[in-house]
Design a protein around this nucleic acid. Structure first.
Length: 554
RNA sequence: UGCCCGAUAGUAUAAUGGUAGUACGACAGUUUUUGGUACUGUUUGUCUUGGUUCGAAUCCAGGUCGGGCAACCA
């Protein structure tokens, strides 16, 4: 079978490497630093790395880039593993850069012996001062010409804890006039007397990213090391270290990180939202973290579909949130169970329905399911809750819901005609009076009447109650990170609207976390993580498309 | 005033010297007991100037614009 869709530039590289026999299988890795929760941008990277080995054979490792003990925590490790698994991917090996601390230490000694690294006593300010600028060369450190033996001894003392934080570093000896600033004798090791989440107090020197990442890739025989564009200048150093160390030549390739409108994808900024209590935690349903989207009701399938659709390239981008919403609607439409819930209730009284009478009507569970999903019984009565917005005292043009004198179908039940309505002293409508047409019962309608509109309802005497949380975009601007000033000043004050008491049909009473529902005509909903029987809480994942909302604005 | 990366409809992404496609969005229509879904149609694009070529989004040169690079972060 031939591939119809065009390949992205990384797939091109992989196919070329496979075709010319450079590799017989490929190895990739997903390498998060455990200093925060994963977000939609990581999902894209995960899909790329795991997707590549699923497609071309080989495997993908999960590797925690835990070389900075002060920012990293086990809580983050656990959440990252959960999120990757939830997205539906299985890593071959669970690995940690900290597993390689001893190996990396030996690499450093190797470099020193080759005369390619030295211990520098300069402070970080002094190092910066000698670094030069992008347009001026740097100057050599006074400690640059120490002998190999002296460097070996000093480095060993560093490891043994003889020196204070910041007093010494190990640096590569490359070229202080190099056009690439990262090649101007980059720091390889720094002293940090800090507790590490895995190695405890065993080490007091920690490798920098540049001395850990490529070597870890190499140790694991990673063939294609994929990272984001900001690491392009690091590639030269990545290759230099592998060459001088004479180890497996992993290759780094860079792609553009994905950005999404009306949100942020920066762990630092997400952490700020959490710390400053702008949101309810990392898994707040308004957050585009994996855990937030999971709690909001997104499915792994929809997120993976989204990542496939936005693709991978090297140019800057800002993807429309509407595409993500499309993907989740597309999946939920197929799997979500249809139920009726009234969020903003007003009473509808059927004056010609016998007082106290009830009857069961049957309503489809999911018309999009293969065999229709079957039906469930719903109790109908003469006193119902309907949505306040489904009635208009003075109907707009093209309005075909309830209005004085208008006919409307009550979903899965009867057609009713609005005869009158009642207002309180302040002019609020408190009840709508209708008469129903007995011959129009859903399923065997012999009335010959056609109602253009259909609305949902819940019987007053049989309704259960639930809290419903309606979410909107977290920011008021498309690209909060690019705006002037602090991004938190662009937070949407109406991003969460809580409906304390919504009326739901009885079939919804046993809803549990993980279940997906469509509240007919209102959107897709899922029980919140803190929802409990008797105290139900639903999160709105996304609204349905609403062409009437557009029409009514005309 | 150095080096590196990039530029294709509103957005994202294909076309790898040979018909500029696809998806989302927008707009219009058909179907509909969800103003949902489904289906149909319409709309809009190669940053710029030269060059090579029978032929350039693609190759070359210059320019413009956007992003990155001077952490003991990753």
């Amino acid at each position: 079978m031939t591939e119809e869709k065009g390949l992205n530039f990384i797939e091109d590289i992989v196919e070329e490497d496979l075709r010319n026999g450079k590799y017989t299988q490929i190895v990739t890795r997903f390498p998060p630093e455990p200093n925060g929760y994963l977000h939609i941008g990581h999902a894209s990277s995960i899909c790329l790395n795991f997707g590549l080995t699923e497609k071309y054979g080989g495997y993908t490792n999960l590797r925690f880039d835990d070389t900075n003990p002060v920012t990293e925590e086990t809580e983050y490790v656990d959440s990252i593993k959960e999120d990757v698994k939830w997205l539906g991917f299985q890593w071959k090996h669970e690995l940690y850069a900290s597993d390689y601390f001893e190996a990396l230490y030996q690499f450093a000694i190797d470099l020193i012996k080759k005369g390619l690294a030295y211990v520098d006593d300069s402070s970080s300010e002094e190092i910066a001062a000698l670094k030069g600028t992008p347009t001026e060369p740097g100057r050599n450190s006074p400690y640059r010409d120490r002998t190999v033996q002296e460097n070996l001894d000093l480095f060993e003392s560093m490891k043994k804890g003889a020196f204070k934080d910041g007093s010494k570093t190990l640096r590569a000896k490359i070229d202080m006039a190099h056009i690439n600033m990262l090649m101007r004798d980059p720091v390889l090791y720094r002293i940090k007397h800090a507790h590490h989440h895995r190695t405890g107090n065993e080490w007091c020197i920690y490798p920098m990213y540049d001395f850990a990442h490529g070597q870890s890739d190499s140790i694991e025989n990673v063939t294609h090391s994929l990272c984001t564009l900001e690491f392009v200048p690091h590639r030269e150093l990545y290759d230099w270290l592998i060459e001088k160390l004479e180890i497996f030549p992993s290759k780094q390739y860079e792609f553009a990180r994905r950005n999404l409108t009306y949100t942020i994808t920066s762990k630092r900024k997400l952490l700020q939202l959490v710390n400053e209590n702008h949101v309810d935690g990392w898994d707040d349903p308004r957050m585009t973290t994996i855990s937030g989207m999971r709690r909001r009701g997104f499915t792994p399938e929809s997120i993976r579909d989204f990542c496939t659709r936005i693709g991978i390239a090297k140019r800057e981008n800002l993807v429309d949130m509407s595409l993500l919403e499309y993907c989740v609607r597309e999946h939920l439409n197929k799997i979500a169970i249809r139920r009726m819930a009234v969020l903003d209730p007003v009473k509808l009284i059927i004056t010609n329905y016998p007082a106290g009478q009830t009857e069961e009507v049957f309503s489809e569970n999911n018309p999009e399911a293969e065999n229709n999903g079957g039906t469930r019984p719903v109790v109908f009565s003469g006193e119902l809750w309907i949505e306040r917005e489904d009635f208009m005292e003075t109907p707009a043009k093209k309005w075909f819901r309830l209005a004085p004198g208008a006919l409307v179908r009550l979903k899965s039940a009867y057609i009713v005609k609005c005869d009158d309505f009642i207002k309180d002293d302040e002019g609020n409508i408190t009840a709508i009076q209708c008469s129903y047409i007995p011959e129009s019962k859903s399923g065997n309608d012999v009335s010959g009447i056609r109602a253009k509109g259909t609305i949902h309802w819940v019987s007053v005497a049989h309704a259960a109650e639930a809290e419903v949380r309606l979410y909107d975009r977290l920011f008021t601007v498309e690209n909060p990170a690019a705006e002037e000033g602090d991004f938190t000043s662009y937070i949407n004050p109406n991003s969460l609207q809580i409906v304390k008491k919504a009326y739901i049909e009885t079939a919804l009473k046993d809803a549990v976390e993980g279940e997906k529902f469509q509240f007919i005509r209102k959107g897709y909903f899922t029980p919140d993580t803190h929802s409990a029987p008797g105290k139900l809480v639903f999160n709105r994942t996304v609204t349905l498309k609403d062409t009437w909302a557009k029409e009514s604005k005309k």
